[in-house]
Each structure stands twice: as structure tokens, then as C-alpha cells.
Design a protein around this nucleic acid. Structure first.
Lengths: 183, 183
DNA sequence: CATGTATTAGTACCTAGTAACAATACCAAG
DNA sequence: CTTGGTATTGTTACTAGGTACTAATACATG
């Protein structure tokens, strides 16, 4: 690696630390063929914390995220459930649900909330989505609060037709009919 | 906190460290009203690493997870794309896609792969899922390798009908027709 | 040549430990 | 009561990966 001017090095430093927060000053010094002190000085000037602090933040950030990711198993918060009758779930559109480009929520997240809600209504060992007809009525944006309501429309032997309506405020944003197969 | 026998303390130690990996020996010593050395000895006997190592593992674990979560923005790996014609995406069913109970993949993940693939075929500033009709042909399990193929079936003004077929091996597991609206 | 910027070196100190050893405390059996 | 044995504590030396600070040096530029 060729020697870089301070500014260049600082920019690269910021990037490399961002993609690999676990790198120590010593390793960085080797990479940029300069002294450890230079790296420390750069970090100081740029307000980049030491490796242990960086690791701690990554750990903390994600320690929380793991918890929320496990909630993902549910997708949305079940507000009310009356088996074989009606169920309501709440979900706020988070940053990782939207497209960076336009802040519009990916359709499959809205689908996921509805799908899980439909499945949660079924009291069976195994319940699977067999088929669905869905319609997105308008784009949903970051931070919108979605309330999905499901009810059983038809029920026969091992098949249930569940209708889900998702609203943002008073406005319908999604409707879906799910056929859930039980075993 | 009352004084505990070694065994009890060690069991509690293991639990508390599991739920709070960021706790130091000193804090633990205070909690159990014993010396730091006792805690260290306990950790040594139980093979529990020091706090910095624990943080590092949490950080690493989740740093990887964040990366996969960012790939989630794509959902599946785009293998081939021929805009306005045909596209193929690959996705392996991971642990967090399946229900713990029966190892069956949640339907919305399969939907997500298909949905993103359909959207990726559209060359427009904004492309949104308008509606869809989907059918799940059989349950999909952990570690199955899903290949989704999409092609444009109809195209008129600002609406495209895209058909997606997802296969596991030679077997069709999912088919969906998506109407994508562009702007 | 002086002045400023960038780099390097060196020191003292910090945290949260490891490793190794010595010194207690306490409880039970001979 | 003394001898063991286990559990606990204290002490010292050493470590990584730093912070904070001071001092020296290199190099360019007016």
C-alpha cells in the first residue's frame, strides 16, 4: 500500500473502520505503513472511538436487534385474538422495510404481517398458506402504523378462507384473501 | 443479595452472563458479595470467557447477521437478469425463515423472494406491487434451495403482469402472478 | 531561514483482564 | 484439638489496546 496524504488516509480510515469495526490501531498502522500514533491522532481528529468501544456498540446495537428480529417470527404485534373469529395485529413500518430510494415499504412486509395474522387465527398443529389473492391499494411509507384485521370468511374441513384488511389510519392500504390449509 | 454456595453461584453466574454478556467481573463480585477473584475462578472453572471476548462474540455474531439482513433488501441472490424478459433468483431457506415448531418455511419468505424478483425485472423509477395471486404447492423445509424464475407475461402502459415460478430442485413449490405498477 | 503541518517517539496511566502463588476461612473427620 | 480439604481472598507480575500528553523530527512553503 502506497503512502497516502493525511486527508486521503482519514477518509479511507473511516470507510475501513465502518466495514470492519474490529480492526486495531496496530493493524491499521501496518495497512497504511505509518505509526500507530498517526492512526490514533487521525481517529482522535475524526472522533472515531477505540476498537473496544466500537465492538461494544456493534454488540449492543445488535443485541437489541436480535430481540426485535425474534419478534419477527411473529411480524407485527398481536393486539387481539379471538380464534376462528377475528384478530388484529399492529406493525410500524421500520427503516429496513422500506426501499432506500423512495421510502416506500416493500410489499412483502405488508404481506408478511397479513400472512402471519391469518395463520395465527388457526388453531391447528400445522397451518400453512395454500394460496392468496392480494391487492395493494396505495404505497405505504416509512413510519406508517399499520393495523391489520383478519376474520374467517369460510371454513370447511381442512381449509379456511381468511380475509385480511390492513389500514393506515382510516385508509385501507392492503386487502388479502388467504386460504389456509391445516393438518 | 445473600451469600450463595459455590454451585448455586456458578449456575446463577452462567444465567446472568447469558442474559447480560456485558457485565464485568467487578460488577458480578458486587452482585454476589464476593471477591473479584472468586468470580474469575468460577468463570475459569466454567469456561466462560472474559467480558471483552464475550462482547466480541456478540458483536461478530450480529455483525454477520446485519450483513445478511442488508442482503434482505434484495432477498435471494439474483442469478440472471434480462430486463423485460426473464430473471432468476436463488435463495436457501435459512433457520430464521422457518417455524421452530415444524421446520416449515413461512410463506411470506417465499413470497418475498418472488416479489423482489418481479420488481427487479422492471426498469422504472418507481415500481410497486399492485396485486398478486399466489399458490403454494407444497411445504418448503429448512435448507431447501429455492430457484425462482420470473418472466413478463403481459405489458401495457404502466402495468406489467409478471409470472414467477419457484422450484426446489425439479419440483414446483410456488407460483405467483404479480401485477407491478410503475410510475 | 523561519514557520507550520504531519509524523513519530516516548512516558505515565487506564481497564479488564490472565497466570501463578500465598494466605486465610471454615467445616468435618480422626 | 488438630489435621485435611475445599472455598475464598489477596498479592504480584504481566497483557492488550488503548488515552492523554509532551517532545522531537521531517518536510514543504512562503
Amino acid at each position: 500500500m502506497k503512502k497516502l496524504a493525511r486527508k486521503e488516509r482519514q477518509v479511507e480510515l473511516k470507510n475501513i473502520i465502518e466495514i470492519n469495526p474490529f480492526i486495531t490501531d496496530e493493524e491499521l498502522a501496518k495497512k497504511y505503513d505509518c505509526s500507530v500514533q498517526t492512526i490514533r491522532l487521525d481517529r482522535l481528529l475524526m472522533g472515531i472511538p477505540e476498537v473496544r468501544e466500537r465492538m461494544k456498540s456493534v454488540a449492543r446495537e445488535n443485541y437489541d436487534k436480535v430481540k426485535t428480529t425474534k419478534d419477527y417470527e411473529i411480524v407485527g404485534e398481536l393486539l387481539e385474538i379471538d380464534l376462528d373469529n377475528k384478530a388484529i395485529s399492529y406493525m410500524e413500518v421500520s427503516k429496513d422495510m422500506v426501499s432506500e430510494k423512495n421510502n416506500i415499504c416493500r410489499g412483502h412486509h405488508i404481506f408478511a404481517q397479513a400472512n402471519m395474522l391469518a395463520l395465527s387465527m388457526v388453531d391447528a398443529e400445522i397451518a400453512l398458506t395454500g394460496s392468496a389473492r392480494i391487492r395493494y391499494k396505495r404505497p405505504v411509507y416509512f413510519k406508517e402504523k399499520l393495523v391489520a384485521t383478519a376474520y374467517v370468511a369460510k371454513k370447511r374441513s381442512n381449509k379456511l378462507l381468511i380475509k385480511v384488511v390492513t389500514k393506515s389510519g382510516a385508509e385501507e392500504v392492503f386487502v388479502g384473501k388467504f386460504i389456509i390449509v391445516t393438518r
